[in-house]
Amino acid sequence: MTQHDNLVELSRVRFLRGDRPIFDGIDLNVAAGSVTAFLGPSGTGKTTLLRLISGQLRPASGSVRVDGQEVPQLRRKALYALRRQMGMLFQSGALLTDYNVFENIAFPLREHTDLPESLIRHLVLMKLELVGLRGARALMPDELSGGMARRVALARALALDPAMIMYDEPFVGLDPISKGMIVRLVRLVNDALGLTSIVVTHDLEDVLQVADYCYLISQGKVMAHGTPEALRADDSPWVRQFMRGEPDGPVQFHYPASTYAEDLLGERR
């Protein structure tokens, strides 16, 4: 999966929910081997973007290429072959609640390989050691804290040694220590295993420490992109507002609506 400079390439992607465009011609690239962050206010479609890249959603038009393959046109079999090269960390962890930690990480190995039990055990323990949870292998998902669940999900996403890993809001709702640990893990895993990582977040400070390249997304468009240093130095009003977390400015906080006065007067439902 490394013959292309860009592992992921989106060009002129449009995506609609009903009649509402979520993306209106978006272009972005993720360089192979990098940690790339997608930043943007809540509800701009960052999760949607990950689902487009992984082929769970199809764009209305435009091209989504991963490793040179046009994802929306892949048949189920080819798509599944591609997904074996992708790990995805859901915000909730999405661990299988019927299985304990060990079995959750063994799950993709058991599904896709015929490895002997001793080797599976070895591989699972290795991934657990990486995320610091080797001692928690017998716990059930409901016995884990949010941060632990996310680390188990990370270990599971790494089980098949993917070429790329996508993190959806990996820092939300974590205490500073767990958060710092995940931040370091993202970098460590990327460099030690030679992966390409995509981190979706609205948590600016943490991601700027770890990302090589950032895209700021809002209102269906890429508003700015660059290295963290370049974005810090950028003084366009939009970037300044977002980077400093100022309430007033061009970034919309409100979901599109009719004017407040109209709603108060009860002219429309």
Binding site: S54, Q56, R76, Y80, A81, R83, R84, M86, G87, M88, F90, S92, A94, L95, L96, T97, F107, P108, E111, H112, A153, R156, L160
Partner: peptide
């Protein structure tokens, strides 16, 4: 409930078809 907690999506992302599994 597996759907509501993203477990089915997670399987799909692990290239495991929830219809089979």
């Amino acid at each position: 409930l597996m759907k509501a907690t993203d477990q089915l999506s997670a399987m799909e992302m692990m290239a495991v078809d929830p219809i089979h599994r």
